[in-house]
Amino acid sequence: MAGKPINPTLKLALEYGPLVAFFAGYLWLRDEMFVIGGEEYRGFIIATAGFIPLMILSSLALWRLTGHISKMQVGTLIIVVLFGGLSVWFNDERFFKMKPTILYVLLGGALAIGLMRGESYLKVAMDELMPLQDAGWMILTRRLCYFFFALAVTNELVWRSLSEETWVYFKTFGLSLAMFAFFMTQARVFQAYALPDAEVDEAE
């Protein structure tokens, strides 16, 4: 189910607004220290604490407006709440920095399980957005599986070896641009394995 259509600009704002707000909050608060309940919290933790409810509210708004929210969005929200909450609870930013790693390992692992069973779980999640022949779905799924694992490794390398500010830029812009670039480079797969118009109409 694709859900009810909404204004594309509003949809984009709801999907990426919390991430942009986290980035802005981090830049604003990164050098600040806050004492809450007798414990000191860095600006990174405060920005993370604000990011969690924004993600929840934006996801609820998307669901309310469209009547649908994808399994990937639900899974992402759960991981954000879990690892973001752990970072705030334990006052330790490492949990939140590991969040993309866990997310991409889970996504890559899910696709890998489907591939081992001869199935494309990506097709189940995105069939309505990109109608392709089964062979095309298998190629795209295999490549995206490898790509997710590569992103997980890259995130670990960035947050463990580079500065916190570099990681924030990487999370805010690098990961989104990497996903965009990946799908742009798959244009030949979309062209070669696109379903004929008649089959698309029949599927709808």
Rank of each mutant, 00 (worst) to 15 (best):
I78D: 06
L132V: 14
A203F: 10
A2L: 10
L195F: 09
L29P: 06
S70F: 03
F44Y: 09
S161Q: 05
A110F: 11
L144M: 06
G43L: 01
F149V: 09
M184W: 05
T9L: 15
F95L: 07
E93I: 05
R188D: 14
W89A: 13
I69L: 13
L115T: 03
L107K: 08
F23R: 03
V189A: 14
T172W: 00
L103H: 10
I56M: 10
A13M: 08
R142G: 05
L107D: 01
E93A: 01
E199T: 06
L162G: 04
L27Q: 07
W89S: 09
L62I: 10
P8H: 08
H68A: 12
M126C: 10
L132D: 13
P100R: 01
L77A: 09
E156F: 01
V20I: 15
L122Q: 13
Y146V: 11
L195E: 12
L82A: 15
L60D: 00
I52N: 07
T166D: 07
A13W: 00
M33K: 12
Q73Y: 09
G108K: 08
M72V: 15
T185S: 15
F173R: 08
V200T: 13
M33S: 15
I102C: 01
Y193P: 14
L115W: 00
L132I: 14
V88Q: 04
A112V: 01
V189K: 10
E119I: 11
A198Y: 00
R42S: 15
R160K: 08
G17N: 02
Q73L: 12
L103I: 13
K123S: 06
V81Q: 01
C145A: 00
F182Y: 04
V200K: 15
K123A: 08
Q186P: 15
E40K: 10
A135W: 05
F96A: 02
V20T: 09
Y121W: 15
F44C: 01
A61V: 07
Y146D: 07
F34E: 04
L151F: 05
A112W: 03
I139S: 00
I79Y: 02
L103N: 06
L27N: 09
